[in-house]
Structures are given as C-alpha cells and as structure tokens.
C-alpha cells in the first residue's frame, strides 16, 4: 500500500518555515512583547554592532540567548530520543523516561557537592558519565529480564530515577547552598543563561550530532531485530554501542545547558514519524527540525500563561508531554 506523501522538498521547507516562525515568536513574545519591526531593527543593530541603547536591546539580547539555547537543546533532545527509540525498539524511550537525565543529574549534584564543580563545561562531562552509567544499567536490567522489554525498560528508568532522587535529596537537605542552585537547575529552563555556554558543550555536541545524525541505517537495521540485522552483515553490537554513546552525549549536552527537559525526546520522533514513515534516515532530520520548534514554542507559551511570572520550559513540556505519553501507552499493545 502506498501512501500519498507531500514531496520531500515541500516538507523540509515547511519545517524550516515553522522553525523560523517559532524563533521569531520566541524573540518577540514575553512579559514585554516587541513588534516584529523592533525585533528586526534590534537584530540588525546587534549584527552591525550599532546598539541604539534602548531598553528593547537588552530584552532582545536576553531573548536571543534563550532562543539560541532553546534551538540547541531542542535539537539535541529530539535526536537523542529518536536514536533511543530506534536502538531499544521501544516507542516509549526518551532520555528522561529511561533515567539517563536522572543519572546525569546525580553526577552533577555529586560534583557540585564534593568537587565544587559549577561550570557548564564541568557539568557536561559529569552529566555524560552519569548518563552513560545509567544507560548501561537500564540496558543490562532490560536484557537480563524475561518480562516485557518495553515495560521493564521504562520501569528500570523509573527505579533509577527514584533511587537517584533519594540520594540527591540526602545531599540537598544537608546543604542549603546546593539546594538553592539545584532547584533552579532541575526544572529545566533555557532562560537566564548566556548563549556563550553553548561553546562549552560544543565538542561533545558536534561529535554526538555527527554520530546520531548518520545513524539512520543502523537504526533501520535495529528495527528489523537482532537476528536479521546480523544476517545483513551489520556489526550489531559495535555500531549500536557507538550510536548509544552519541545519544547519551546529546542528552548530556542538553542537560548541561538547560537541565533535564522531559518528554520532548519522546514526543518529537512520534510526531515526525506520522509524516515521514518508519525510515530513520528521514526521522532523524525531521526530529532535528521539529525538536527546536517544540522547545521554542513551549518556552514562549510558558512566558505568557501565568503573567507576570514565567513557567520554565521543562515544566511546560512535562505537563504537555504526559498526555501524549499516556496516548502512546494506550495505543501500543501494552497490557
């Protein structure tokens, strides 16, 4: 059965246009909204370096920072989720649900408490380490278990998250300073950060992006199941391991930049799949476009729902993403 599809070029164009609109909204809307003209003037002023000195400049520059960080985080989280879903053949996989974000968070808290590490560059490697350890643990438990794989994986992620939460709580209740910085970090937010921090995560981000971006064939083969995959001559374990490290690397980059952001990695690949079909060579670039759109739109929405205060993007995605997860659970033939 063939499905009538829009031509690929048109879909890509649509995605890019959506991204541009989302970015413009993210620049223009907030507790003090700017007109499109003011945004444009401000941007040209920033580019040419001729700041007009108006208050709009400051607002725009802060919004530009959070828009850039939102772009990068959306890209990283969505690709990470897509790769995890492909690798585990589990429609419910996502760096948050599988516990990778919690593992990363634990490593960050322990680094903060015992080594005094509090820079994004430091967070990054701790987050990567914590995320990798968790990923290995979750994968190991799920592959030893004889129960339902998808369910076991999700539950293992939840178990890790619960255990990690206890350890973190143990640290935070006895260290008010750590609590003060951690409570703002753990909600997941792209606001109040300087876009310069993107440079700190750049090496890991670029390498992981390359690995995951090119992993389409590996993920397609993984979808066939391990036996068929081996018969087709794929070096199953090595290729998968490399892609898994890339996926965790992306999740760690996002966590270091913005804190843990829930459900974006889960939802985006499913939305993309509706348009592209099951081919990961299409799902991956699609996710790379839709992830940033989703982050930017929810972040913008979070600025206007409870004026004058803001709701952080991590909270928004969790509240909006949970119903989607429930929908997926009901649709998947899970008992």
């Amino acid at each position: 059965m063939t499905r009538t599809r829009l031509p690929t070029g048109a879909v890509v164009l649509l995605g890019v246009a959506a991204l541009a609109v989302a970015a413009c909204l993210s620049l223009a809307i907030g507790s003090r909204s700017l007109s499109p003209g003011a945004v444009l003037d401000g941007l040209t002023a920033l580019v040419t370096g001729e700041a007009s000195g108006s208050s709009a400049d400051g607002i725009l520059s802060a919004r530009l920072d959070r828009t850039l960080i939102g772009l990068v985080v959306g890209l990283a989280v969505a690709l990470s989720g897509a790769a995890m879903q492909g690798l585990t053949r589990n429609p419910l996989a996502d760096p948050g649900i599988l516990g990778v974000n919690s593992g990363a968070a634990l490593a960050v808290v322990l680094g903060l408490q015992f080594a005094g590490i509090s820079t994004v560059g430091g967070y990054l490697w701790l987050a990567l380490l914590g995320g990798l350890v968790t990923a290995v643990l979750v994968y190991a438990v799920a592959s030893v278990s004889q129960g339902d794989q998808s369910l076991t994986m999700v539950l293992t992620g939840a178990a890790v998250t619960a255990g990690v939460t206890s350890v973190i709580a143990g640290v935070l209740v006895s260290n008010q300073g750590a609590l003060q910085s951690f409570r703002f970090w753990q909600v997941g937010s792209v606001a109040g950060r300087d876009a310069v921090i993107i440079a700190d995560v750049l090496p890991l981000l670029v390498v992981s992006l390359l690995i995951v971006g090119l992993s389409g064939p590996v993920l397609n083969a993984a979808a066939l199941g391990e036996d068929l995959e081996r018969a087709l001559g794929q070096r199953v374990h090595l290729a998968r391991f490399v892609v898994a490290v890339g996926a965790v690397g992306l999740a760690a980059s996002a966590v270091a930049l913005a804190g843990p952001i829930a459900f974006v990695g889960l939802v985006v690949p499913h939305v993309v799949r509706l348009v592209t079909g099951p081919d990961y060579r299409r799902i991956l670039p699609g996710s790379a476009l839709v992830g940033p759109v989703l982050i930017l739109l929810t972040d913008t929405l979070g600025r206007v729902v409870t004026p004058p205060s803001e709701i952080q993007v991590g909270i928004m995605t969790a509240v909006l993403g949970a119903p989607v997860l429930i929908l997926l659970i009901r649709r998947a033939v899970l008992r």
């Binding site: 999700v154 829930a262 952080q312 991590g314 949970a322």
Partner: peptide, 21 residues
C-alpha cells in the same frame, strides 16, 4: 497492570515537574 503502571509513571513525571515548579 502493565498499562496502568506505565500510565502511573507518565502521571508521576508530570507531578514531579509540578513539585519542582
């Protein structure tokens, strides 16, 4: 129970973020 547990985990993730907020 499997489906109910997964729905519970979804709800829990949402509630945790409310608590964080």
């Amino acid at each position: 129970p499997g489906r109910m547990i997964l729905v519970g985990i979804a709800l829990a993730a949402m509630l945790v973020s409310v608590i964080h907020w």
